[in-house]
């Protein structure tokens, strides 16, 4: 047992009064598990990640703990990877990867070799001296992955990291991520709105309801790895989950259209 969320709710105060984004989220994730969250947009998927990352505080009665100790704020044991553009453009690729190590005050002589090692893992050694604006979207996300893994976090929190990539690049990154996960065995919590992506990656897929976000259902995915998006059984499983999710999407659409 590693990460535990109990009765986690989150209310945002807005100009139009409080809005409940999450309600009574309850789940736990074991060490080394790969868990995907899916849900319609605006269901609070990213808020769950931000709360685990310690970037946002949940409502008072909520508890979030890792290995028994409560989460108080952000820390390098939980690294967040964003949809895009979170690399520092003023640093070249290798310096971006080194950033977290330097913040951790890692001994200087160990920083470079370690960064090189993780850059090799995402097949970007050749681009160590490039600047971020010279890289494609897929390459940027690979650098982001290396930058996150190099600090040896307990878990990776991935917030729709592949959603702005084209289909081929995404497919290749899904393979790469599975390979890396099978080697390093870290806990990964992955948020997406793409069901096949979730089924492709997750040991479990958790479906969230629309506003407020609650856990609607959980699916255990037992397909053999590595999985490919086009695989027949994967598509079958995805369609099954789609039925569940569609209800929620329709609900969002109805709410958004019906208000005026």
């Amino acid at each position: 047992m590693e990460l535990v969320l109990r009765n986690v709710s989150k209310t945002f105060r807005t100009a139009n009064g409080p809005i409940k984004a999450l309600e009574d989220i309850d789940f736990q994730v074991d060490t080394g598990e790969f868990v995907c969250f899916i849900g319609p947009s605006g269901c609070g998927k990213s808020t769950v990640l931000n709360i685990i990352a310690g970037l946002e505080k949940p409502d008072p009665h909520s508890t979030v703990s890792i290995d028994g100790s409560p989460v108080e704020g952000p820390g390098p044991d939980r690294i967040l990877i964003f949809q895009q553009d979170a690399l520092f453009p003023w640093l070249n690729v290798i310096n971006n990867v080194e950033f977290g190590l330097k913040m951790k005050k890692f001994p200087n002589e160990k920083v470079r070799p370690l960064a090189e090692e993780f850059l090799r893992m995402v097949h970007l050694s050749r681009f160590r001296n490039s600047y971020i604006h010279e890289l494609s979207g897929g390459m940027r996300q690979r650098v982001a992955l290396a930058r996150a893994l190099v600090v040896n976090p307990k878990m990776l929190l991935m917030d729709e990291p592949f959603s702005s990539l084209d289909a081929q690049t995404r497919e290749r990154l899904l393979m790469l991520l599975q390979t890396i996960w099978s080697i390093i065995g870290k806990t990964i919590i992955f948020v997406t709105h793409n069901i096949r992506e979730a089924v492709c990656l997750g040991d479990r897929v958790i479906v969230l309801t629309a506003s407020p976000g609650r856990i609607k259902r959980e699916f255990r995915i037992d397909l053999p790895r590595p999985r490919r998006l086009g695989d027949g059984r994967l598509v079958e499983t995805s369609n099954l989950i789609m039925g569940d999710l569609k209800e929620e999407i329709d609900k969002v659409v109805r709410e958004e259209m019906g208000d005026d």
């Binding site: 990352a53 970037l55 939980r78 690294i79 979170a86 520092f88 950033f99 977290g100 330097k102 913040m103």
Partner: peptide, 20 residues
């Protein structure tokens, strides 16, 4: 997003000012 990324990687205080 830069600030979020920096703080999850443990950037604080003076290092955060100089680095980010």
């Amino acid at each position: 997003i830069y600030l979020k990324a920096a703080s999850t990687m443990g950037a604080r205080g003076i290092r955060k000012y100089i680095g980010v």
